[in-house]
Amino acid sequence: MNINLKVNGKSYSPDVEPRLLLIHFLRDVAGLTGTHMGCETSLCGACTVELNGKAIKSCTMFAVQANGAEIVTVEGLATNGKLDPVQEAFWNEHGLQCGFCTPGMIMASKQIIERNPSPTEEEIRHGLEGNVCRCTGYQHIVNAVKAAAAGAGK
């Protein structure tokens, strides 16, 4: 099947198998391996990307369902070598250890701040419910989201 979609501002018109998962399109066809597969069952959030402005889990969506969509992955966040404030905050606050959950965490965190520019700790934690991190215990991630929100509000 032929589809058209934009990823990080770049247009793609691939011919894909109907059963190709969006995450596999991103990783194997578009070569954007920053989006990770952690569970294949939409329970860990490692595969989170932004599709038409909404954070979604790319492991449980077919590439063909993204026909016509605009997608942003973690690779699309930094502009002209300048990190996105959320990326910067994850770095400053030590919001990652092994880094495997991080791209999904960053995408989910961006969404939290977009929906609610000054989230409370509780709101941040609930916003991150769908994303598993096995390394950090989440505390530094919560700090990172707070810091990013505070910075963005300035």
Binding site: L83, H94, G99
Partner: peptide
Amino acid sequence: IRRREDPRLITGTATYVED
């Protein structure tokens, strides 16, 4: 001190086996 390994991890450019 913030970690020196992080830039590749937060930009999605690190290489895990699957990559």
